[in-house]
Amino acid sequence: MADVETLLTICRHFHPTDKGFRWDAVPLKHYKPEGTHFRDITRQVLFGPESGLPAELRYFEVAPGGYSTFERHAHVHAVLILRGRGRAIVGEQVFEVAPFDLIHVPAWTWHQFQAPDDEALGFLCLVATDRDRPVRPTPEEAAQLRQHPVIGPYVRL
Rank of each mutant, 00 (worst) to 15 (best):
V4G: 01
P134R: 14
T36I: 05
D40W: 08
P137F: 07
H15K: 13
H15A: 14
V26L: 09
E141H: 12
R146Q: 10
I10G: 01
V79H: 05
R58K: 11
R156F: 02
D117M: 06
E34M: 14
V62P: 07
G20L: 11
D24C: 09
H30N: 11
H111D: 06
Q147P: 01
Y31R: 06
V79T: 13
L145C: 00
R83H: 15
A88G: 11
W23P: 01
R85E: 02
I151N: 00
V105Q: 08
V26T: 13
F14L: 15
F70V: 08
P137Y: 09
L7P: 05
P134E: 12
T69M: 14
I81Q: 02
R156I: 06
G66S: 15
A107M: 04
F38K: 09
R136F: 08
T17D: 13
E119N: 03
Q93E: 15
T138V: 05
R22Q: 09
G65T: 12
P33Y: 02
F60I: 06
A2D: 12
K19Q: 15
Y67C: 02
E141T: 12
L7E: 10
H111N: 10
D117T: 10
D101K: 09
R146F: 02
R146I: 03
F60K: 00
R72P: 09
P99V: 07
D18V: 07
L46Y: 07
R43N: 06
L80S: 11
Q147H: 05
L102P: 00
A107P: 04
D101A: 07
Q93H: 13
V94K: 01
V4I: 10
F60E: 01
R83I: 15
P116Q: 09
Y59A: 01
T9Q: 12
E34Y: 11
P139M: 03
G35T: 12
R85P: 00
E119Y: 02
L82S: 10
T36P: 02
G20M: 09
F123W: 04
V90R: 04
Y154R: 03
F47R: 11
A78Q: 15
A88Q: 07
E140S: 09
G52L: 05
D3Y: 08
E56R: 13
A128C: 08
H73C: 13
K32A: 15
L82C: 14
V97C: 09
E56C: 12
F100G: 01
F123H: 05
A63M: 14
G152Y: 05
I89P: 03
K29A: 08
C11A: 12
E5S: 10
Y67K: 01
